[in-house]
Amino acid sequence: MKRRNNDSGRLERLLADGWKAGGGARPDDLWQAGVMARVRAAAATPEPAWSNGAGRLALRISIAAAAAAAILVAWTLAGGLIPYEELAMKALDEPLSMIIGSPFV
């Protein structure tokens, strides 16, 4: 058993050494040209709005606002401020006032 454990430890080290040596792939001029072609293509593509500073800020604010709205709705319903039935009827009868009216009527 001890012998097997020692062998396993040695084998693990040999395999790790083989792994560390890598697969032998090397960069060459063709590879470098390929990278630069992709980099130039990326430079020519306009940056998506969400990836720049202002875009990221707007995205974060939107997510926070959506989360706050969801919490408010859950709190309103759970607290019994508006019964489900009344809410449903209001939505069916007067969808416009439902949207623009106060939620606490």
């Binding site: 890598g22 697969g23 990278v35």
Partner: peptide, 22 residues
Amino acid sequence: FRIVGRRVPRDDAGEVAQDVFV
């Protein structure tokens, strides 16, 4: 290449290394 070459199969190392720089 040293980092990527250890971690992915040899045939894919070049492409993953390109992805890194992009």
